[in-house]
Amino acid sequence: MKLLVIAGPPSSGKTSLVKQIVKKMKHDMKIAFFKIDVVKAFEDVELNKEFGILARKFISGDLCPDHASVMVLGDAVEWAETNGAELFIVESAGLCLRCSPYLNQGLGIIVLSSIAGIHAPEKMGCMVTLADIAVVTKIDLVSQAEREVLVQKIKETHPDLILMETNALQGTSLHRLYEIIRKSSDIDAETLVLKGNPPLGTCTICVGKKEIGWKHHFGVIQKLDGQTAEYLYRGE
């Protein structure tokens, strides 16, 4: 099973990008989609309805969504594999910018909007610097010069990033991305770990623990199905 972890600030175009990838690749491989969000998420229903692929979501509620993702990702990978998925797409909530959801295997994609502001690439820290690919969206809204200025800023933040620009609503110029996904290696669920550190110094329970799956963690933990304590969970 191939793995894509997609991150980026709200409204940057992550779901539009996912839709283009699914539209293009669903005939070649069985796709499963997993969305992690804090308060509400509609993407699972939308994607299932539009493309008939396996899709589910996880609402983190009171918990930091990236911490929640670390907890449930083990189960989620197992869910996707058990259901025979050949491509597993994880869309993160991507909020506080202290950590990044990318794993040591598969591909990490940062989605950035052309109108996000010139300092966004630097401000977003490891969400940009640990990604494999950056997709710049909404390119129809700005001038070519401004696009190139933003792309230059991203390159200076992370020189080895593979960069592409698109109008994700139309799926412009994404052939190269599809090619990279097709050629990416299958993951080994047993050896999956985070690329970066969990929110450093803010959570004494998860700091330094890169292992994914709730069984490696203690303290406030949630499983993909069901919760461990009634009073801890106030999402959707």
């Binding site: 809204l141 200025v149 230059q152």
Partner: peptide, 27 residues
């Protein structure tokens, strides 16, 4: 290829000089 679009708005919070300097670097 260089293109002038119909956009009459820039979103980058930079001075004209900084904007052009980064673009020159990009090119």
């Amino acid at each position: 290829i260089a293109m002038i679009t119909q956009n009459t708005k820039c979103f980058a919070d930079l001075s004209s000089e900084e904007f052009l300097r980064i673009h020159a670097r990009a090119r």
